[in-house]
């Protein structure tokens, strides 16, 4: 459960105040698939950083699973990220010379998961993103872009987070592989009940979520439910 109450964020530099978020309030229930959409400069990156516990709001409250994390210290925020949030980035951010499996196991290092269990947990995460098993020992720079993003999704899943935060996950992919990635999110949401927040500037991408929050100039201007574009066709996973 995610609850934002009147969140603001103002950047200050040399007596210049730049308000980026001007009072954001919304609630996302567990198991929701929500897109946050807006043009560049609308404050969606800043909102994502706050949602992902990478940054703190200037004012307002952010309740994640009932805990107000707005005034957490840096190390406490690290704990929140480790236990509750899985990130998927536009640029994948995989360790290039490490294998697929090792990349997925990386968060388990910081969670101090027992070594014996790691491979099993990582394997389960990779399977649920549809990553073929014969690629698990490939180096992450030897696989295709679509596969890279699925490895990144598996990495986000591996700590069993309350929230998966995807920042323009299809931005570096062509539309076909982009659709496969979006399908992966839909399936994780419908079949595993994962809570997913998708940040994008493209309506076409946003429409794959069940609910869209439109952000403009630091405010939510529209909160819409709509007819979701569905792509769940399992056969597509091995298409690329």
């Amino acid at each position: 459960m995610i609850e934002l109450r009147n969140i603001t964020k103002t950047y200050e530099s040399d007596e210049m105040k730049t308000p980026v978020l001007k009072g954001i309030t919304f609630t996302i229930k567990d198991g929701d698939f929500v897109a946050i959409m807006g043009p560049s400069g609308s404050g969606k990156s800043t909102l994502m950083h706050i949602l992902g516990a990478l940054d703190s709001a200037s004012t307002g409250q952010y309740l994640l699973d009932g805990k107000n994390i707005s005034d957490f210290t840096e190390d406490q925020l690290s704990d929140i990220r480790r236990e509750k949030i899985g990130f998927v980035f536009q640029a994948f951010n995989l360790l290039p010379r490490a294998t697929v499996l090792r990349n997925v196991m990386l968060p388990l290092i910081y969670a101090e998961t027992p070594v014996k269990e790691r491979e099993k947990i990582a394997g389960r995460a990779l399977l649920s993103t549809g990553m073929p098993e014969d690629r698990w020992n490939h180096h992450s720079n030897q696989i295709s872009g679509g596969q890279m993003q699925r490895v990144a999704i598996a990495r986000a899943l591996v700590n069993n987070p309350s929230l998966i935060l995807a920042d323009e996950p299809t931005g570096n992919l062509d539309s076909k592989t982009g659709n496969i990635v979006l399908g992966t999110f839909q399936r994780l949401n419908k079949e595993e009940g994962r809570t997913i927040i998708l940040i994008t500037h493209e309506l076409d991408v946003a429409e794959h979520a069940d609910r869209i929050l439109h952000l403009k100039d630091g405010l939510i201007v529209k909160d819409s439910l709509h007819h979701t574009k569905r792509i769940i066709k399992m056969n597509d996973y091995d298409a690329d």
Partner: peptide, 8 residues
């Protein structure tokens, strides 16, 4: 990235 996935 390491920080994002929870490294202190």
């Amino acid at each position: 990235l390491r920080k994002a996935i929870g490294a202190t």
